[in-house]
Nucleic acid binder design. Structure first.
Length: 302
DNA sequence: GTGACTCTGTTGGAATTAAT
DNA sequence: ATTAATTCCAACAGAGTCAC
């Protein structure tokens, strides 16, 4: 496919652009994985697209305590129109264009968001290699949607009927997976744990309480059944699975121990693994359940 | 300052694809 | 079938920060 401006779009480039549109922004490595290219090729493509005004970027600046931050590309209006015009992807699948908050540039939260996107892309890539599976829909904490008059985070929901702050739950990400052969769908939530001191824990001085609380909220969410109503447009769900991802096997075990006291009958709805394993083979046998005695590793789907 | 990290961009050539 | 253009990629150089 060629465009008047002398810019050529390959299949893989279009695929990468589509994923920038889906997740709002991607690093070079994420683009490479999503598009099925190696890093330098992805880097080339992205720079050319930026020169043509299809993409913008933020990041790639020095930051105290880190070195250099990754360069993060987002789709500009022109790039969005390019994607609509030059690809054969149905417009309703592409969705509408969202202006990217350029003034935000870089915040510490960005690391967490990029890791969440890493997980979703790992899931997308793993699903792509299994023809019987299809990613129906993805949701992320950082995308905002209009709920009535308010603008809320896409994954915001409540664990009880009362919409109070104590009942609020905001998963980092969610996705709906379908087995196209059986037509069955599964609902998954994702928690990306960065293993760094959060602001909250430096105030309360107790790290375990916040994690414990978070998992407890998910227990209440499971029992409330409210998720079924919220995600009804995407399928009929009687339960969900929470995927908890963190760094290092030791921390996985620590967390499993920390939530040991929670109801055992809900343990099966939880899966724990490390970021490294999840990036490699998201659908592989890498997931442990919540019961501390069960050291078996299970795949997410059969 | 130096070396070990974190990143990106450039360079030149191999592999693929298109054109004649 | 040969040539020309693209596309992809490995290796390397450059830029920022940290620990020493």
């Amino acid at each position: 496919m060629s465009v008047a401006a002398g810019l050529t779009l390959t299949r893989s480039t279009v695929l990468g652009l589509f994923f920038i549109q889906r997740y709002r922004f991607l690093t070079i490595d994420q683009f490479a994985r999503a598009a099925g290219m190696k890093r330098p090729a992805a880097s080339d493509q992205l720079r050319v697209l930026e020169r043509h005004g299809a993409l913008g970027h933020f990041g790639n600046v020095g930051m105290r305590g880190y070195g250099k931050t990754p360069k993060v590309y987002f789709l500009k209006r022109k790039g969005y129109e390019l994607l609509l015009r030059e690809s054969d992807i149905p417009p309703d699948l592409i969705g509408s264009h969202k202006e990217t908050f350029v003034e935000a540039k870089w915040s510490p939260q960005m690391f967490h968001r990029l890791h969440t996107v890493d997980l979703l892309i790992a899931a997308e890539v793993a699903i792509r290699s299994r023809p019987n599976l299809s990613m129906v829909r993805t949701f992320t904490e950082y995308r905002r949607v209009k709920r009535g008059t308010q603008i809320a985070r896409e994954t915001t929901d409540f664990v009880g009927t009362e919409e109070t702050p104590e009942n609020r739950i905001i998963p980092d990400a969610a996705f709906v997976l379908e087995n196209v052969e059986t037509g069955r769908r599964g609902l998954f939530f994702v928690e990306m744990d960065m293993a760094t001191e959060r602001i909250v824990s430096t105030i309360t001085r107790d790290h375990r309480i916040t994690l414990h609380f978070k998992i407890m909220q998910y227990d209440r969410y499971l029992q409330s059944g409210r998720f079924a109503k919220t995600y009804a447009p995407f399928g009929e769900f009687r339960f969900f699975t929470l995927l908890f991802v963190t760094f290092g096997e030791a921390r996985v075990e620590n967390i499993r121990r920390a939530v040991h006291g929670l109801p055992a009958e809900l343990a099966a709805y939880y899966r724990f693994t490390t970021f490294e394993l999840a990036s490699e083979d998201f659908l592989g046998p890498i997931w442990k359940t919540r019961s501390i005695n069960d050291n078996e590793r299970y795949p997410l789907v059969r």
